[in-house]
Simulated assay, not measured.
Amino acid sequence: MKATQYRIGDMMTCAIANMLQDGETVFHGVSSHLPMVAMALAQNMHAPHLVHLNIPGGMNPSSIKKAAYSSAGSDLLASAEAYFPLEQVFDLSMRGKLDVAFLGGVQFDLYGNVNASVIGDYHQPKVRLPGGAGSAVLIPTAKKAIIWRTKHDKRTFVEKVDFVTTRGNLWKIVTPLCIFENRGGKLHLDSIHPTSSLEEVKENTGFELLYDEVKYTQPPTETELSILKKIDPFDYRSLEF
């Protein structure tokens, strides 16, 4: 399949969906349209028994076609199989029962530290960010944390984060250029998207790239793209780009 037949948002969504396994319990938070669509894609492809949890508390909503802009609207509850409130998600994670949590951040370093608090000095920051919120609890306690970021540059992937908001069970980071995987406490280059190159990833990463071999992410299939059009007709997966 040629790269021109899909967009990078499609690439990232399908890559994330393929990380999810049937029967896993998976949570996404606010402003999380891309992983929300990826979860629905996985349910429609290879993981029909995946359990979808979200901030409104709607377990396994039957449709995301009218999902609110925040990806945390009441519509996710209205079409749900059951009610599972947010406080129970934290409890579930701390008991070791949450398989995957989708979370965000602004800065990341080689050691998987996540900064979502400040840019610059903590006491006199250049930019004050939203803070850890749920990620400070879920990244250390969920079995696997997956982070997605629609920007990949040296301001995002830095040698040392300005502030450590959280660290823990960070598993993978998906960007428009590649996928990083945490191995032995360090981020390794897991795969490069077919739309990018090793040189481009190196030029836009502020720490040394670790990898055993150069691998490429599987591009979206025609079936995946067809299902995406059905489950995400308003193209929520592209909102962050």
Rank of each mutant, 00 (worst) to 15 (best):
T4D: 10
Y6S: 00
Y6G: 03
R7E: 00
R7D: 09
R7Y: 05
I8R: 01
I8P: 01
D10N: 03
D10M: 06
M11H: 09
M12R: 02
M12I: 13
T13Y: 05
C14L: 06
A17F: 07
N18W: 01
N18F: 04
M19R: 05
M19I: 07
L20A: 12
Q21Y: 07
D22T: 01
D22P: 07
D22M: 08
D22A: 12
G23P: 00
V26E: 02
V26N: 06
H28Q: 04
H28K: 10
G29R: 11
G29A: 05
V30N: 03
V30L: 06
V30C: 06
S31D: 14
S32A: 15
H33S: 15
L34W: 06
L34S: 12
M36V: 01
A38F: 11
A38P: 05
A38E: 12
M39K: 11
A40C: 06
L41Y: 07
A42W: 02
A42R: 09
A42I: 14
Q43D: 02
Q43M: 09
N44Y: 10
A47I: 10
P48H: 13
P48D: 13
H49S: 15
L50K: 02
V51I: 15
V51M: 15
H52P: 01
N54K: 03
I55H: 02
I55A: 10
P56R: 11
P56F: 00
G57T: 05
G58M: 04
M59A: 07
N60L: 14
N60A: 04
P61K: 12
P61I: 10
P61F: 07
P61H: 08
K66D: 14
Y69M: 15
Y69A: 15
Y69R: 15
Y69T: 15
Y69S: 15
S70M: 00
S70F: 03
S70D: 12
G73V: 06
S74A: 15
D75G: 02
D75Q: 14
L76A: 06
L76C: 12
L76H: 09
L77P: 04
L77W: 13
A78Y: 01
A78W: 02
A82W: 07
Y83I: 15
F84C: 02
F84G: 03
F84D: 08
F84I: 04
L86P: 12
L86N: 05
L86C: 00
Q88S: 13
Q88E: 14
V89R: 13
F90L: 12
F90N: 05
D91C: 00
D91S: 14
L92A: 01
L92C: 14
S93Q: 01
M94W: 13
G96V: 10
K97H: 13
V100G: 02
A101D: 02
A101W: 01
A101H: 12
L103W: 09
L103H: 10
L103D: 07
L103V: 08
G104Q: 00
G104E: 11
G105P: 03
V106C: 08
V106I: 14
F108V: 11
F108E: 03
F108T: 12
D109T: 09
D109H: 02
D109E: 07
Y111M: 08
Y111A: 07
G112E: 00
G112Y: 10
N113Q: 01
A116W: 11
S117K: 11
V118G: 08
V118I: 09
V118T: 01
G120M: 06
G120V: 11
G120S: 03
H123R: 13
Q124K: 15
K126P: 11
K126F: 08
K126D: 11
K126R: 13
